[in-house]
Write a protein that binds this DNA or RNA. Structure first.
Length: 1012
RNA sequence: GGGCCCGUAGCUCAGCUGGUUAGAGCGCGCGCUUGAUAAGCGUGAGGUCGAAAGUUCAAAUCUUUCCGGGCCCA
């Protein structure tokens, strides 16, 4: 070693760092996003970036991602954030891909949750909702929704979401209400809307229907009864007569069932008048039992034959106080299915046939193994009844569901023998209906046993009083009824081959839609294929009315397929709603206003006051937003929501649009999963594992939240928590600092001095080749909305190829080479290209940070978000070059590995202290290495390349053949400027402690007026 | 209970139609640098690919069952 002591005086005299092209930038290492982002937002607002984007994109092909409206009743949560960030990234991506990508946010404003809030307010003030005029109540709901739209709008914008927040769409806007009402009228006009009935939870005390969420379960003591249904008939076989299926024929039951009864158990005796069937299960074993001993006067008499589940026979007999009984034989599911029962109160006017229906909801855990089925009094009862409706009709059984209880809890004329009896009083107490029914059953010798039971029973959340299931008229949309064309009446299109039904249209539309991920197609298809008719009515106040009139005598609808004045009614309603909102429907004189002069007898017509289910509202957004706005288009390119919306918005929009337009309102559907806590479980307040977007924004910034979305697999469920966020903070820092170094370095970039492409060194060409490769990945990733792939490719490139390799190697050239150096200028040109490309690629994902970086690079320039994605030249691809450099980088790894051992042994510190001997056996590789400056690549002060075999103990890597490294210290003097050890330090007497290369740099520097 | 989906290093993700010792980034340990410095570089340790059967010469990759988790229904 021949270290020459540096001239101490000279070293003190010259601070060479002042003569280097070191990075210079104001772009801070630490982002301070929570403070910085609002500043950027303010700038975007001041510049009206949204308008600027529209102007910039005027005339381009449109890309429309139609916003699914969030519900306007609370602060945004992490799920909203995920959803809006994904939408925003795609919106921005498409804009930069060259579309006019216009995002119009929307809100769902009607519906129950808002009604509750307003009712709550009234209650707190001691007022009753029913005492408040409907118009006033609706006005309060409107104000409430407006309030939350404002808050959510601000919260969405804080995430960086860009869109027409100044003109969003609202389901409660007057025009929207007018069009929604017009849409349901279209369904009426084409014969798809009909009035049917369905059991709903009903509070007698409040005289109102309740949603599941308005009900709580409390202990309640019910009367229980075991009731005998006599076996009456056995079905014959259906016969085909003249091509028509005849109703089933009936025979007397098999002799062993003569006089037998099927026994049911229920806790609601008052529903017996509503009974229409008895359900059983094919998974339960049943038997025929004979009573052989019974006390005098007992309801169960000796000789009586009962059908029961085997598992429950003992219990039932015990409850019936039977002293002894025997099993006569097994009863199969087939036998049960064939039997028809009589209603136990047949004599009172219940003379219809009671079928036995096979249902999965039946268990043999308690009761008798048979379930009393009153389709107007239970959800499962209703469903099994409707499910069997076709077959029941063939059996000549009327499937109409009786209205046995009125809205005050009294049994009606549909309950002969009990009319006027009270189920539940207006105070919420038990009425006299149960006793009357039980007495009648005793009288009819149909009661086997009775008792009382304490159990959990639904109560109104508000009044805390018990509720009942009650059949109520509701409005439905047919899934399988031929859709009439305008002016047609039923049957007019008979003769066409395929029936044009809503279900058929929807299934076809699903097949024509692209799904991301593809599994969504299957999922939506399954739901549409199996769903029952669509119930669209709600007995509520805050919504859009089902704006039709119904003739109480004929059932005719106006507008409707047979009503002559339909177009006029539609026009009147549309005009009124557009100027006054849907409130017009509830104003005095509305019937005369909309129907006057169009019918002979106004009195025969009833205005339907039910409102539409909010799913119909949001299912119509395509009609009042996409179709109406000139700056959008119909159908949308994409709908994007959480996977729960297969049942929700994707579903209702599909049905609504298929019913009115014959196709889906979207070409593609993208779904994301749900956000879980870090352990993969649901977030919940009680577990304290929630992550609030507001907290993340306050602590780390919106770009961190966005980066979290970008690095997650949104197709699956996502996880978030402290550790995961920290990971993203670290990744962000790495990206940010890499950009920061580029910015600093580019402070010295003079575009006019960029060398010609032909003069670019191999290393620069290699990096451009890699950039072209990454461009392909980025393009492909964006094309499939696979953002983790995009961000992964970019960050891998920035970390592995740039920060750890290219930049590290080129620092010497960039900092130390003379100003005129081609190598230095070529590197600067490439860094400029890299910066420009990377910032644009990342702009949709990290809009704040990229805007900040762009502004640092080009002060005063317009927003990066107005730019297009860069064209990365395919000419930069050079696979042969890349293959050569893959080998060179392998050799580099061997060198750095060898140096690491030297470092560990404290023989060197900086790699510039080394000049290792590299043994390369392979001639081709040796030749390749000889052409390049391996020392420069390995960041050593020298490399001795030799072809001789490696001595024992030389450093090798198992996966790099024929390369061995023997470490050695660099020989020469450490250049005080570049810190490289060379043998030409002092070549220029003006700078005796500096290498020849650095002396040339200093000469240029001095000539340019530099001083230090 | 039913439909659909998911389960690869501490974290986030790659691993195509089955084929050599399962990869990357981040984090973590150790070291270097101090001219990207609350940064940069190097290097190391981490996985029986949820579990078990099966198909196959060969399975993270195919089949079945189970376990765990999610969404939607019931």
């Amino acid at each position: 070693m021949t270290d020459t002591p540096v001239d101490a005086a000279a070293a003190r005299a010259v601070d060479y760092s002042k003569t280097l092209f070191l990075p210079v930038t104001d772009f801070p290492m630490r982002a301070g996003l929570p403070q910085k982002e609002p500043e950027i937002l303010a700038k975007w607002a001041a510049d009206d970036l949204y308008r600027a984007l529209r102007r910039e994109a005027a005339g381009r092909p449109k890309f429309v991602l139609h916003d699914g409206p969030p519900y306007a009743n609370g602060h945004l949560h992490i799920g909203h954030a995920l959803n809006k960030i994904l939408k925003d990234v795609i919106t921005r991506q498409k804009q930069m891909e060259g579309f006019d990508s216009n995002y119009v946010p929307g809100w769902d404003c009607h519906g129950l949750p808002i009604e509750w809030k307003i009712e709550e307010k009234y209650r707190a003030a001691g007022q009753n909702k029913d005492d408040v005029p409907k118009k006033e109540f609706r006005a309060e709901c409107r104000a409430f929704a407006e309030h939350w739209v404002g808050i959510q709008s601000a919260e969405f914008q804080r995430l960086g979401v860009i869109g027409d927040f100044a003109n969003p769409y609202l389901t409660m806007a007057y025009e929207a209400e007018a069009i929604i009402a017009g849409e349901i009228q279209k369904f009426a006009l084409t014969g798809q809307l009909y009035r049917g009935s369905k059991p709903v939870m009903w509070s007698v005390v409040e005289k109102t229907a309740l949603a599941e969420a308005e009900v709580e379960y409390q202990d309640y003591t019910s009367d229980t009864i075991f009731v005998k249904f006599p076996v009456k008939l056995t079905q014959g076989v259906r016969e085909l007569i003249g091509g028509e299926v005849e109703p089933r024929r009936y025979n007397a039951p098999p002799v062993e069932f003569a006089g037998a009864s099927v026994v049911i158990w229920t806790t609601t005796p008052w529903t017996i008048p509503g009974n229409r069937a008895v359900s059983f299960s094919n998974r339960i074993a049943y038997g025929l039992y004979r009573v052989t001993a019974s006390p005098e006067g007992n309801w169960a008499t000796v000789g009586e034959l009962l059908v029961l589940a085997d598992k429950l026979a003992d219990e039932v007999m015990k409850a019936a106080k039977v002293e002894a009984f025997e099993k006569v034989g097994d009863v199969s599911a087939e036998e049960l299915k064939a039997l028809t029962l009589a209603h136990p109160l047949a004599a009172l006017g219940y003379g219809f046939q009671v079928p036995l229906l096979d249902g999965d909801h039946v268990t043999d855990d308690s009761g008798t193994g048979f379930v009393h089925t009153a389709p107007g009094h239970g959800r499962e009862d209703f469903e099994i009844w409707m499910h069997n409706a076709r077959d029941l009709t063939l059996r000549d059984i009327d499937t109409a569901i009786p209205f046995t209880v009125d809205d005050s809890g009294f049994l009606t004329q549909d309950a002969p023998g009990f009319t006027g009896r009270s189920v539940i009083t207006d105070k919420g107490d038990k009425g006299d209906a149960n006793k009357a029914v039980i007495d009648a059953l005793v009288e009819a010798r149909a009661l086997l046993a009775r008792g009382r039971m304490k159990h959990q029973y639904p109560h109104s959340w508000r009044s805390k009083k018990p509720v009942i299931f009650r059949n109520t008229p509701q409005w439905f949309i047919h899934m399988d009824r031929e859709i009439l064309k305008a002016g047609e009446t039923a049957g007019a299109s008979a003769g066409t081959s395929e029936p044009d039904t809503l279900r058929a249209r929807a299934l076809r539309a699903i097949a024509d839609t692209t799904f991301y991920p593809p599994a969504g197609q299957n999922r939506l298809n399954g739901m549409i294929a199996n769903r029952p008719d669509w119930v669209v009515s709600r007995q509520r106040a805050w919504g859009v009315p089902i704006a039709v009139f119904r003739n109480t005598a004929t059932g005719e609808l106006a507008p409707g397929p047979t009503f002559a004045g339909s177009a006029e009614v539609q026009a009147r309603v549309a005009a009124a709603f557009t100027s006054e909102g849907a409130d017009a429907w509830y104003a005095d004189g509305a019937k005369e206003r909309f129907l006057g002069g169009l019918v002979d007898d106004l009195g025969a017509w009833t205005k339907v006051d039910d409102i539409l289910d909010v799913w119909f509202d949001s299912g119509s957004t395509h009609a009042f937003c996409l179709r109406r706005r000139a700056d959008l288009k119909w159908p949308a390119d994409m709908y994007l929501e959480g996977s729960d919306q297969h049942r929700g918005w994707f579903h209702s929009s599909l049905l609504e649009s298929c019913g009115t337009n014959g196709r889906a309102p979207y070409d593609a559907v993208l779904t994301h999963g749900f956000v879980m806590a870090e352990d993969g479980r649901k977030m919940s307040k009680s577990l304290g594992n929630q992550t609030q977007p507001q907290d993340v924004i306050k602590q780390s910034g919106a770009d961190i939240l966005r980066l979290w979305v970008m690095t997650s697999d949104y197709a699956d469920d996502l996880r978030i928590g402290k550790e995961i966020l920290q990971t993203n903070v670290e990744s962000y820092r790495k990206l940010r600092n890499t950009l920061r170094w580029m910015l600093g370095t580019l402070a010295h970039h003079v575009p006019a001095e960029d060398p010609a492409p032909a003069d670019r060194p191999e290393l620069e060409r290699l990096i451009l080749h890699r950039l072209a490769e990454v461009a392909d990945q980025v393009k492909a990733g964006y094309a499939e909305y696979d953002f983790k792939r995009v961000v992964g490719a970019i960050s891998n490139f920035m970390v592995v190829d740039l920060s750890a390799f290219y930049f590290d190697v080129r620092k010497d050239a960039l900092y130390c080479e003379p100003r005129s150096s081609v190598k230095r200028r070529a590197a600067l040109a490439v860094v400029a290209t890299l910066f420009d490309t990377l910032v644009k690629w990342l702009a949709p994902m990290l809009p704040f940070t990229m805007e900040e970086a762009w502004g640092q690079r080009f002060p005063g320039a317009r927003s990066v978000h107005l730019e297009l994605f860069p064209d990365v030249s395919a000419d930069w691809r050079d696979d042969a070059l890349a293959a050569r450099w893959a080998k060179i980088r392998d050799v580099r790894r061997v060198v750095t590995g060898a140096l690491e051992l030297e470092r560990a042994a404290k023989r060197i510190g900086s790699s510039l202290e080394a000049a290792p001997v590299v043994h390369v056996g392979d001639a081709a590789l040796h030749a390749l290495l000889a052409e390049i400056d391996l020392a420069e690549i390995a960041i050593t002060s020298g490399v001795v390349l030799v072809a001789t075999p490696a001595p024992d103990g030389a450093f090798t890597l198992p996966d790099v053949a024929d390369v061995a490294v023997v470490p050695a210290k660099a020989v020469g003097t450490r250049c005080a400027r570049s810190w490289r050890v060379t043998d030409d330090v002092g070549a220029d007497p003006r700078w005796p402690d500096v290498s020849a290369r650095d002396a040339r740099a200093l000469a240029e520097w001095a000539a340019a007026g530099g001083t230090a």
